[in-house]
Every structure is written in C-alpha cells, then in structure tokens.
Design a protein around this nucleic acid. Structure first.
Lengths: 333, 333
DNA sequence: CTGTTAGCGCATTCAT
DNA sequence: ATGAATGCGCTAACAG
C-alpha cells in the first residue's frame, strides 16, 4: 500500500495525499476528508523508511544502557520512552552489560541504524571510545547518570548525596561504616559514590578505608557475607546501588545479623521495588524517570534547533533520601 | 557519507561498493580490500533507511510488553534483544502499562514504523483488536506469555503450574489458601493462574473461594494487609506474580505475620531478584529470557521462510519451582 | 488549492 | 569482474 496507489484510488495526486498527512491545512477540507477516508479504508500507512530517506531524519532515538535487569535503568528507560513518544520519537535501545566492547558495538550499530540522536550511559565518559566516535559522527547525544565536564549530561550529585548519607549515619552513632562498591572500572557513578564516601568519612573524622568492590551483574552475597562475619563487623553499609544493597541485606541475614538492629544498610537509586521490601530499603533516591525524560527533552530540543548539544546544557537534578527500615541508630549494648 | 561519495573517492562504481557489502564474493579481492579500507577511513556506513526502502524489509522487530518495571518482562526483553541481535535484527519496544488503548496504539505505531515482525504480549489474545489489525496487515507476529489456540505463542503451562503448587501447599499441611490475583481483565495469564488455583483447590478437596484481585502496577499492600488481619488468616498465599508476592510479604509483615512461620507466600515468574530477597522468594519459575529468545527465533524463521507464522508453531516451555524461604509447612500449635 | 518532477541512498537487473 | 540505469515511497520545490 503506497502513496501512489492511494492517490490513484482517491483520484488525486500523490502530493495531495502527502499534504494531507504533513500539511493538512494546505489542502481543501473535502479533499482531505476524502483522502483520509480512503486511507482508512485501504489501511494506508506512510512508509517510515521512505520518509526517513527523504527527510534525512528517522524520528528514532538510540538508547544505550548497561542493563535492564537493574530496575533503575528500566525506570529510566520508561521516562525516556515516554518523553520520546511525546515528542514523536521512537526508541531503539541496546544494553551493554557494563562491557566496553558492547558499548562500542551498540553505538556503532545505532550509528548505522541512522538514529537522530542518542541517550546513553557509558562506563566512563572520560575515556569512552564510543563517545569519541559519536562526536566524530556529529550525532547529537546526551549522557544520563554519567557526569563529565566535556559532555552534555543529566544526573544527580552522587558524590554529595553519599557524603550526606555518611553524615546521616554518623549522626545515628555509626563509626564503623563500610562501602560496598560496584566495579569502579565499569562505572563512573561508582567512582563518584566512592569519592563521596571517602570525603564524607573524612569529614566525620572516621576511618574510610573499609570498602569492598563487587560485581554489578552477578550476585556477590558470599563475599559480602564473609566480610560481615569478621569480628567486629561494621555497623553500617553504604552500597553503590539498590541491587547491591538488597544483596547486602541478604548477606547480613546469612551472617546472622539483623537489619537494622545489628547493621544498617543504605542503597542508592531509589528503585520503586525498594519500597515494597521488608525491611523497606533506606536509600538515596534519584528521579530515574525524570533523568530519562530530561535527557530526551534536551536532545529533542537540540534536534529541533539544529544546534549541537553542548556540555553547558548539562542538568543536575535533585536527589532525595528515602527513610526506609534498613537503617537505624547504633544500639549501645 | 553516501555510497556515491565512497564510490567516487575509491574510483569504482556504486554497484561495486554495494557488492562489497552485500555480495563480497562477487568482487575482486583487491578491489574489495580497497573499498573496505576507504570505507573505514571515510567512516562510511550503509544508510539503513535507504536499504529498508530498497529491500522492503527493515531488519527491525517490534516488541510490545505491558511494562518494564516488572523484571519478568525486562528479563524477557533481554532474551528478545539477544536473539534478535544474533539474527541481525534490532528491536523497537513499546509498553502498554496493561492498557488496551496503549496496546492498540503501540501496534499501530509499530505497523507504521515498518517493522518486519512483532513479538508481543497482549491483555487477551481472544479479544485483542490490536491482534486483529496485525492479522489484517499480514505482518508476522508471535505472542509471548499469552496462550491461545488461534495464535502462535510461546509460554509455559501456567494453569498446570499453579495446580501443582496448590498440591505442594496441601502436602505441607495448608488448608486455608488464598489467591492474590492480578487484574483478570488485564491479563490472560492471571486468568490461567486463577483457573489453576481453582482446579488445584478442587482437586485437593479444599475451599477455593478465597481470592483477592489487585492491580498490577500500583502497590496493593494495604488491601492485602487488611485481608491478612482478618481472623483466622489464611496459612498460605498464592500470588499471580513475583511482584505481587513481594508486596504480599510486606503486607504480611505489616499485619504482624511472620513469613513463612505464620504464613507461606508463593510467587510466579521466577525473577532473578527473588533469589536475593530475605526471605528468598519461593516461586514458580519461567524461563523468561528463553521465552523471549524462542519467540524471536520462531519469528525470524518465519521471516526467512517467507511463510506466515501459524498457531501450530506454538511452544510450551518447561516451568520449574524455586524452593525459597517464603514457604513452609503448617505448624500446628 | 492541486499536480508535476526531482532526488534521498541503496540493491539490482542488464550490459559489457 | 565491473558499470550504467532503474525504482523502492516519499517530501519539497516549482508551476499552474
């Protein structure tokens, strides 16, 4: 079903049909109604490929995320999809599983798929070859969750958030706090959060040398459990993200520690699921859907303006703290 | 960077360049190497829209899912993405939030986006208008999680699974079992699972009249808690899915019941996260990634054969049971 | 207000 | 083994 057939059946020219769908005002009301009716009857839908080829834009945004198995990114993708849809864009998502090779490949494929722009989270903006290729291709893009002065980003101040959470723990009487960090090489967010931990501990005059690095994808309950079985155990754990916090809670149980009576555990991300857990997860909350939405909005705006998206357009959104049940004050026996 | 420019720079015709990328064997080795090298240097990538227009196929599969906020669908999408990528397809996902209007709209958009085929989960295959439109458009599609004799599907035998789980609970001494079901109108899976509950309870000679219908998206902890506070409370809960089971565990805690000592709670889906919970979720497991993978494989095969995908191609995969910690035998005081 | 025409970038005959 | 020519379906001048 092509525009030509519809035009023939309707008894008008293809330009008129085209106008009906693109510039409806510029066509006679009756003609328009007739065309629309015939289109409906014949099940005509404008061919997206032909339109993309002609217009030199696909109305598709590429999306690159580490994984959808962490709800934080599923929530973000939700926001992305919503904002994209609102702006008339479809999305083409790819996941990297936190691997550089996949990151590069995803960007490569997306470039070949002629998307109009990209929303992505990379391992490390400072060193990402995928990002360089993107710049070389002069394709508009925006990073989400990442933060770097040379790129347009949408994120929260992770470092500050963790520093504040350390202060909060200190105020609750915690002195022995351990950081459970995701692989630092795989994530600049983990690095930021680690910096927040270090500076926070230092600011409280506490020993910030205790931290454990665990994988993002595979569960590390065993390792965390082993750490908790050492005597004395830390009275609080600050985790790189909610998934790791959930695993830490399990590790604590396996180590015979009650949460929060024996140990406080704090996450980062604010995934919705955390609210339904028992104990409810205490965590630093990010506006995940909004992060995605804002990223798309910036991108769409740049696309509309025809201007490149500059680093100075970066947005730092507000984070929060969810007072759950996995964090309590230290009990002095 | 078009094929013409590359051809000009390389000193060959565009047909030769085209052959280098599509029929490499039919071009001289030296010429091929030269073209490839120049392509690399100039950063040439074949334009996907042009190719789609010419080939009348986009190498894109549409995907329609209720939501990505339930990890079961995120896991499935992961499998879909993997299999699609392996077969050289990209994916264009849309979510419906369990709403019929969105379901129809998603299919409509995907049709307009000229995808080559669709993987989807609909509310109800028997009545879905989106599905009818798909058939009318003669676009290959496969349903996942849904099950219906008139459509090609990939799923598990939910009814049998629940029936068996009821038997398992009965064997553990449970007599008072309540079903916490997702909105039946929004999901044929919920209907299947309810049927399994009814027939399972009947088979055990138990009263299967106790069940509660809760939303999929919003949390229904309050309602479930209220149900549990009635005296006497059921000794076991069978839930439509893992997310509802997680909320039920929270509801139990709020109602002052210990899981599993005071009440057993069983989920459905086998989301990975369930293994990291405390108590570890006891649940019926589905091979979520495989369901997605199989769906894509069927679709890709049909696309390759040029044949329509028939209902008789439907696949019923094996389910399992994860013995977690949220289910125990009845303690007789 | 409507029709005619010229490509967008590519794969594919048909020649050579 | 390679090149010239055609058209996929559509939008955007341009002409009327």
């Amino acid at each position: 079903m092509s525009i030509r057939e519809l035009a023939a059946q309707t008894g008008v020219s293809i330009s008129t049909v085209s106008r009906v769908f693109n510039l409806p005002d510029k066509v006679n009301t009756d003609t328009r109604a007739h065309v629309l009716q015939m289109a409906q009857a014949m099940g005509y839908l404008p061919n997206a490929s032909a339109r993309s080829l002609r217009m030199q834009r696909s109305k598709v945004l590429g999306v690159v995320l580490p994984t959808l198995l962490n709800p934080v990114f599923a929530e973000c993708l939700n926001g992305i999809a919503q904002a994209a849809s609102d702006a008339g864009y479809a999305i083409l998502p790819m996941t990297t599983d936190y691997r550089l090779a996949q990151e590069a490949q995803a960007v490569q494929q997306l470039l070949a798929g002629n998307v109009d722009g990209l929303v992505l989270v990379v391992s490390n903006p400072a060193t990402s070859s995928a990002l360089q290729r993107l710049r070389a291709a002069r394709l508009p893009y925006v990073l989400v969750y990442n933060w770097h002065a040379d790129h347009p980003c949408v994120s929260v101040d992770s470092e500050l958030a963790v520093r504040n959470v350390v202060a909060r723990l200190a105020a609750l009487g915690h002195r022995s706090i351990t950081l459970i960090s995701g692989k630092l090489a795989a994530s600049d967010r983990a690095q930021q959060r680690q910096r927040g931990f270090f500076s926070g501990m230092a600011a409280q005059g506490l020993d910030g040398s205790h931290w454990l690095e665990v994988p993002f994808v595979e569960t590390a309950v065993k390792e965390i459990c082993a750490l908790l079985q050492r005597n004395p155990h830390p009275t609080a754990l600050v985790c790189s993200n909610d998934l790791i916090a959930i695993r830490s809670i399990r590790a604590a149980q396996l180590a015979g520690l009650r949460v929060p009576q024996d140990i406080s555990i704090i996450g980062f991300d604010g995934i919705a699921l955390g609210e339904d857990l028992t104990p409810m997860l205490s965590t630093i909350t990010q506006p995940n859907a909004d992060i995605g939405r804002c990223g798309v909005k910036l991108l769409v705006q740049a696309l509309a303006d025809g201007l490149p998206l500059v680093p100075s357009a970066s947005l730092l959104l507000a984070h929060g703290f969810r007072t759950g049940e996995s964090c309590a004050s230290v009990t002095h026996p």
